[in-house]
Design a protein around this nucleic acid. Structure first.
Lengths: 120, 120
DNA sequence: ACTTGCTATGAACCAAGGTTCATAGTTCAC
DNA sequence: GTGAACTATGAACCTTGGTTCATAGCAAGT
């Protein structure tokens, strides 16, 4: 697959694909080069990039992703700890989202703190 | 309450309190000035800032918060729509987090896509 | 009264996550 | 075989969400 196809399938601009590659978010085995130096992407990169997108959108940083993605960087034990920590983080985020939802619903009902203040 | 107290109670640096005020994230009725031009915060600002923190941490932007917070900016109907849209967004984020969690667990088990690729 | 600490301000600075630009080689359709 | 479209590169640029700096006015204990 060439860049434009990956871009179409993932919805990510080509510039972002290159940016991620530069940042080493995309594992090297997913990108090689053809005889014209054009990038050739493995088909698996699409699903991978969807995961990257999700994780970034829920508050993970690129640096955190790299730690999870890079094989050599950490030992299995370290990585396991990291992933568990992240899963923990996700649980916390979910709890926060739940309370945010309640907060927003209160806003809607005119019950939230900054609303009550106005009614005085 | 003075700035330092709000800072202690919320964990936000004073610089951030001023930044939020400048950005109009903090409703004007929560901050006034004393005879020395020192800021005087209403006690409700603490809970409010905790909500702000939560919403920012789960992917809301300051601009989005302002739209929700500012009374005059939108009509009730518009605001209601906005809040419902945001609640919808939260549901999507929760779903994403759930799938991210599964993804991370797969990583842990050695089943995730970029792992399977390595084993070949 | 004097030192230490809190407050104020605007402007400069910073890191993250991308995007745009200038330039140049490739290739596909016609 | 020529133009429109795709690819490559490094460097510059941009936005968001803050933080730091230089300077100065209050304050509170001793």
């Amino acid at each position: 697959m060439k860049a434009s196809e990956v871009s179409k399938l993932t919805g990510l601009p080509i510039s972002t694909l290159r940016f991620y590659e530069r940042k080493q978010v995309i594992p090297v085995q997913f990108v090689s080069r053809d005889e014209n130096n054009y990038r050739v992407y493995a088909k698996e990169v699409v699903g991978f990039l969807e995961d990257v997108r999700t994780l970034l959108s829920v508050g993970f940083t690129i640096q955190e992703l790299i730690l999870l993605i890079n094989e050599s960087e950490n030992s299995y034990t370290e990585k396991k700890a990291l992933v568990q920590e992240k899963i923990q983080h996700i649980q916390e985020q979910k709890a926060k989202l739940e309370s945010s939802k309640i907060f927003l619903m209160d806003v809607l009902e005119g019950k939230a703190s900054f609303q009550t203040h106005c009614q005085s």
